[in-house]
Amino acid sequence: MGFFSKIFQGLKKTKDAIANKLNAIFVGELNDEFYEDLEYVLISSDIGASATEEIIEEVKKVAKKQKIKTSEDLNKALRQIMANMLTIDDEEIEYPTLISFVGVNGVGKTTAIGRIANKFKKDGKSVLMIAGDTFRAAASDQLTEWSLRSKSRIVKYTEGADPGAVVYDGIKSALAKKDDVVLVDTAGRLHNKSNLMEELKKIEKIINREWEYQHKNYLVIDATTGQNALSQVKMFNECVGIDGIVLTKLDGTAKGGIVFAIAKEFGIPVKYVGVGEGVDDIEDFNAEEFVNGII
């Protein structure tokens, strides 16, 4: 099942008042009422006041230029504008590659790693997971479970161990076994806790020192997150540099519109979207399909 159909299925479950309203807005003349409805739809998906304003301004401009009179005709132009906002050039994966997953507590980092590992395994790559979350109770047990499900290798320490040491040993192991993909789990941390962010910096330093190949940091964001995601991106980006976003929990009713604001403010691309509970429920990001999930 493709990403779109899965998202759509997720949305279908709640194609309630809001969803119906979405379809209903592309009817009739382009007037203030239409734009107000559009604003409601966009803000309700957490796109945020400022990015919403930008989209609407852009739509108005296009409508004027192309002499669009009805909202039906505007539908396509709007989708195009929104998809363009999310289309950001990015370099391809070169093996061997190492990806660190960072983020605040409870966004689904460990689960995302399990599924991404599974995806790489399906492509015939060898995967090593590093259990860098030595803080949360039973986090490495959880990752071990995912390593079994995805048949990946795992390097882990006991709880309370120094995450830097686990990462160091993990990298050494990956280099020795010549793994294609190394996925590093880190403890969830609120971005405004400076001591925890320092710890992350230390891990980053170790990776940069010990790993000479491609290295990416992905920030995992829960689709239900509101405008605070911007603060998360800002702080994590300042701390270790963020190369991509993993948007999780899109199978609920939240639309994850905050990625528009993230694209606008920081120009960071979305890499993966989590669309369900199963081991296969993670997909490569596709801007057009994502926009279709919102309007």
């Binding site: 709640t14 803000i43 309700s44 998906s45 957490d46 605040v104 409870g106 829960d222 239900t224 997150t225 509101g226 405008q227 605070n228 995601a229 609920g252 009713t253 939240a254 639309k255 905050i258």
Partner: peptide, 10 residues
């Protein structure tokens, strides 16, 4: 989660 956005209502 206090960071929840618009979907908190739903």
């Amino acid at each position: 989660d206090s960071m929840t956005g618009q979907d908190a209502v739903t």
